[in-house]
């Protein structure tokens, strides 16, 4: 059971809420309260747009515990348009459709259940191809 951890991380997981450095404007994700660029304190909340592109990816056939039901699935390093690189699952996409540089957008999806079918449902960000005409 990891209830306190899931609860603590909910904002960043549900909506890509990170931080912006008040000194050098660097956008920070995941939030860590200290700017990785200038080393100063950075606690100002910042909501990322969720837009980005695939920097690299791999497909998982042998999943870690808790994710077996979803194989095969693709995990990517996503370069957010504000700068940070995040690791996340891709969703609504077949492996053969994925390529480096592919534009993606954040969606909130079910990540896994904590333990068995009696456990907490854990939700968080994933990315999917931008599939709509411009609006």
């Amino acid at each position: 059971m990891e209830i306190p951890r899931h609860w603590r991380l909910r904002k960043q997981r549900y909506g890509l809420v990170g931080e912006v450095c008040p000194h050098c404007e660097a956008k920070i994700f995941p939030p860590r309260d200290v700017c990785p660029d200038c080393g100063k304190e950075a606690k100002t909340k910042f909501s990322f747009s969720g837009q980005g592109e695939v920097y690299s990816y791999t497909t998982i056939y042998n999943a870690p515990s808790g994710f077996e039901a979803n194989v095969p699935y693709t995990v990517a390093l996503v370069k957010l348009e504000e700068g940070p690189l995040v690791t996340a699952q891709l969703t609504d996409v077949a492996e053969e459709e994925v390529e480096i540089g592919m534009p993606v957008e954040m969606v909130t999806r079910r990540l896994h259940q904590d333990g068995d079918e009696r456990g907490l449902l854990v939700y968080g960000y994933k990315f999917r191809p931008i599939g709509f005409a411009a609006h």
Binding site: Y14, A69, N70, Q89, T91, D92, V107, T108, R109, R110, L111, L121, Y123, K126
Partner: peptide
Amino acid sequence: PGLDEDVVTMSIE
């Protein structure tokens, strides 16, 4: 719905 979708995730979108 996909494997990672339910009423929560669909309502959010």
